[in-house]
């Protein structure tokens, strides 16, 4: 099915396919870039860089395969290679210690977040959105990444493993740890708002 692989496309063909298959991913890609860099200008640069690379290597992209996952992978590699170095983010934490097979003892505790379901006004919805964003932004970038890929963009574990270049088992354990961290931050917030569960 990969007849197109490595085949030299004419410039017109390439431009047309690029526009039809890759540009529609611009919105999720920009959102991912923004959540990684937490800066609009950096997100802009990162997305442009990603598309330039994608164009350069477009002859190797197999038509009909997952364009979104391919672009996300390029973007994530660009972020690691170029942006992370100059980013203001805290130094990378070595998660190998926490990525061992996890236990279940940290999923208990009455979560205050449950109480948010009965708040229905728009301003409260906005407030929740802001709070989720700031809790998420406070997570280390590796944790933030898996939550965005899974919960916001709906990638499968297998796609995430390919995008991040890690085994599926690591995707699972990282996601589990990331959710526990996020839960902890949101529960603190809920408690500060007077919800003690």
């Amino acid at each position: 099915m990969s007849e197109q692989t490595g085949k030299q496309l004419s410039k017109e063909e390439k431009d047309a396919r690029f526009e039809a298959e890759l540009l529609p991913v611009l919105d999720p890609l920009y959102n991912f870039a923004y959540r990684l860099t937490l800066d609009e200008d950096d997100a802009n640069d990162l997305v442009q860089e990603t598309y330039l690379k994608a164009y350069r290597f477009f002859d190797y992209f197999e038509q009909g395969t997952n364009a979104k996952a391919w672009l996300f992978r390029i973007l994530k590699n660009s972020f690691i290679n170029e942006f992370r170095k100059k980013s203001k983010q805290p130094a990378k934490v070595d998660y190998s210690e926490v990525e061992g097979y996890y236990n279940s003892d940290d999923v208990e505790g009455e979560g205050g977040v449950a109480t948010t379901t009965d708040m229905r006004t728009e301003s409260v919805q906005d407030l929740i959105g802001d709070e989720v964003a700031s809790a998420l932004n406070a997570l280390p970038v590796d944790f933030r990444t898996v939550i965005i890929l899974c919960d916001l963009e709906g990638f499968t574990y297998e796609e995430m493993a390919k995008i991040l270049d890690i085994p599926i088992g690591t995707v699972r354990s990282r996601l589990h740890r990331a959710r526990n961290s996020l839960k902890e931050k949101l529960e603190k917030y809920a408690k500060s708002m007077g919800y003690n569960g």
């Binding site: 919105d27 920009y30 959102n31 923004y34 609009e40 997100a43 979560g111 977040v113 449950a114 948010t116 379901t117 919805q125 929740i128 959105g129 802001d130 989720v132 964003a133 998420l136 939550i147 919960d151 916001l152 959710r179 996020l182 839960k183 949101l186």
Partner: peptide
Amino acid sequence: LLKGLVSGHLKRV
């Protein structure tokens, strides 16, 4: 609920 908070409440830029 936690997954729903991210997927349903996080604003897209």
